[in-house]
């Protein structure tokens, strides 16, 4: 079957030039789905097969050459769990689907309400009352029906967190309260995978990345057993689209950097943003000891490749 898929890709490949003039062989997004149907596999599998024989799925042309062919394959082979499908989660999911992450597990027990319409990408008048994960799955199908998407319409709790991690390579924290974030962090550490974490209030927020060996959320929110609050400034300031979308974009960029092991990640650092005065600053979360430790163990866990069963 593989050989015949490979031959079919070769036959359907088109010779063209990239915008910098370099030659390139591509395959049309609709042909990818046709071949997937013929071969009884997902479009993602066809995209990977095409890339391996140096045929670029045309949907990724504008990812070149910031992303190499090998990078694109690595992203398509990656499985990312996105917990929370509200303001952060919607835009992170959309962005990662478009850039070419191949496998998703989307988690949220909430349904859309009218007060989500100011920022949440997958919310719409027609979606009020609809489970957020259902709208997210529908959206991803319209962007790329070849993606492998699992969805769980349930809230994350300490009891189900481990199961929800499944066999993902990385988890993205798009939650809206502190306790669930700690539950997610514990599960990510238990699964041995990195967590990209962000939070927003008004038009400000912060982003960081927590590897299993890191102190993590405790450095931001204090010790979990001393938590007296579930929520933060957002209860007074709301969450506005420019702040949420910006922080979600930063989270998405960080996911790509961590998965591709590009370095200069936000491990043990906190990127803070405030659109009120355009503050962008990356702060060191721990003193020199932890910073030294971080540079001595460069994201070993990101190398861990795990697969959907």
């Amino acid at each position: 079957m593989k050989n015949s898929l490979s031959r079919r890709i070769d036959v359907l490949a088109l010779s063209r030039s990239l915008s910098d003039g370099s030659p390139c062989r591509t395959i049309d997004a609709r042909q990818v789905m046709r071949l997937a149907d013929e071969a009884g596999v997902t479009g993602r599998v066809v995209e990977v097969a095409a890339l391996r024989q140096h045929v670029l799925p045309d949907r990724y042309i504008r990812n070149l050459k910031t992303l190499s062919e090998a990078d694109q394959i690595r992203l398509l082979e990656s499985a990312v769990c996105i917990v929370g499908q509200g303001g952060l989660g919607g835009l992170v999911t959309e962005t990662l689907a478009r850039i070419g992450i191949g496998r998703f597990h989307l988690v949220d027990g909430d349904r859309f309400e009218a007060h989500n319409l100011n920022r949440q990408l997958f919310s719409s008048i027609d979606h009020i009352g609809m489970p957020k994960t259902e709208a997210a799955v529908m959206r991803l199908k319209t962007i790329n029906p070849g993606l492998e998407v699992m969805a769980t319409a349930a809230y994350l709790t300490p009891d189900n967190a481990d199961a929800l991690m499944g066999s993902c390579n990385l988890v993205v924290d798009c939650l809206d309260n502190i306790r669930s974030r700690f539950a997610l962090e514990a599960a990510a550490k238990g699964a041995g995978i990195p967590m990209v974490s962000a939070a927003v209030a008004g038009i400000s927020g912060h982003v960081t990345t927590i590897f299993p060996e890191d102190e993590g959320l405790e450095t931001i929110y204090g010790p979990e057993d001393q938590l007296t609050i579930a929520r933060g400034s957002e209860t007074r300031l709301g969450c506005l689209a420019p702040g949420v979308n910006l922080i979600a974009s930063l989270e998405s960029a960080e996911v790509i950097k961590v998965l591709l092991e590009r370095g200069d990640t936000l491990q043990n650092r906190l990127l803070i943003v405030d659109l009120a005065d355009y503050t962008f600053e990356t702060l060191r979360l721990s003193g020199t000891t932890a910073a030294k430790k971080a540079s001595a163990t460069p994201q070993a866990t990101a190398k861990k490749q795990r697969h959907f069963s």
Partner: peptide, 10 residues
């Protein structure tokens, strides 16, 4: 000196 209150929205 920078001071952040707890922020947890998404």
């Amino acid at each position: 000196v920078g001071i952040f209150p707890p922020v947890a929205g998404g």
